[in-house]
Amino acid sequence: MIALETHDLTVTYRKRPVLYGIDVVIPEGNLIGIVGPNGAGKSTLIKAVMGVVRSTGGWVKVFGKPVKESLKRIGYVPQRESIDWEFPVTVMDVALMGTYGKLGPFRWVGEEQRRRAREALERVGMLPYAKRQIGNLSGGQQQRVFLARALAQDSDLYLMDEPFAGVDAATESAIVELLKELRSQGKTVIVVHHDLQSAREYFDMLLLLNMRLVAFGPTAEVFTTELLQKTYGGRLTILSEMAEKAAREGTGKLHPKNEP
């Protein structure tokens, strides 16, 4: 069964092309890493899949259906830097937020939801901190809270944006264990990752991205010098330049649709 499929996915942000014609088919039940240089569009790919960022071309299907219909099956863990840590919510509040998707906006939060949240917090080792406001945590602890939220969502497809950034070694191993556990439960986990070396160890499959999809497949097959050079080596500069020029000077359209 296919967890995620995109066709010709293109995203332009402020006249600069970030993703250009991405075609990918991701089978379920795998632990997949997305790697590429800075600005390659890795975060954007996840956001485009979620519909958080508008695509200017192409389409996305999750579990064979348009994303809007499959939203409840997706768990999203954002980058930590986009969160306001002084927001008045506690660790437990954040974990509970994970249950809101299936609960809907208006039903009361019940014992079932609280139990799920507690279990999720337990799994990441954050239950003792349940009543703490999220600003009073270390980087690793903060990351774990958001993972707990994702766990509480009980999704089939997880999209995580740099979950290992700024996290201590112990937390990092704990997170990897957790991800592997999710994979063994049949879930699909797609992770934007910043470090090549560890990417090789952690993930079953790798997606090499640099505005274009350079390669996608089992880690062993894809982690070759040639492909890595293509991803990080900057040979696609003409493409990005021309695409940017098209977006800037052309009638402003890379594809027939309007840009966001």
Binding site: M50, L71, P78, D84, M97
Partner: peptide, 22 residues
């Protein structure tokens, strides 16, 4: 009060909110 949950999630984490359909 009725829209509390929607307002909370949208204000705290717009991406999560979008994923919930808010």
């Amino acid at each position: 009060a009725v829209l509390y949950r929607i307002l909370l999630v949208s204000s705290f984490d717009p991406s999560l909110a979008a994923s919930y359909g808010y």
